[in-house]
Amino acid sequence: MAKVKVEFKVNGREYSREVEAATRLLDLLRNELGLIGTKEGCGKGECGTCTVLMDGKPVNSCLVLAPQANGREILTIEGLSSGDRLHPLQDAFIKKGAVQCGYCTPGILISAYYLLKNNPRPNRDDIKEGISGNLCRCTGYVKIIEAIESVTEGREGHEE
């Protein structure tokens, strides 16, 4: 199969890779770049587990072909924290008990990050809608919603 060159930015770093045209962005991230924080849950865009941001917008990386990411900027879970310092959303997920088996966690964190970036003061319904592309089978979403709510603007750092 023909190889295609993909030049793009992931978590602020420039990458250039030759891939087969049918390679999924998810596989490019995981297998070629070693960014295995992004998980595959269904491979069909149903579960949101593989959510990343492409040019600031959430996509299911299993439904995006790697060449489509050419010239784009991708944010994955690895880019949410900086070094040892976790993103406040990650801190909130940990403290509020929003992490159980953890498999959906990276995707939901990315969706939540996108939500707050575009709507720093979401209400509960906004939060629910914002993560409704992501499935979680463990938590019943309650603690995830609470965790996101705790870092919305004006509430950050205020523990009950």
Binding site: I36, G37, K39, I77, F93, I94, G97, T105
Partner: peptide, 16 residues
């Protein structure tokens, strides 16, 4: 108590 694997999971660290 905060779960002992929560931090790693929130970072998407490899272990599945």
């Amino acid at each position: 108590i905060v779960k002992n694997d929560a931090v790693a999971k929130a970072r998407g660290e490899p272990f599945y």
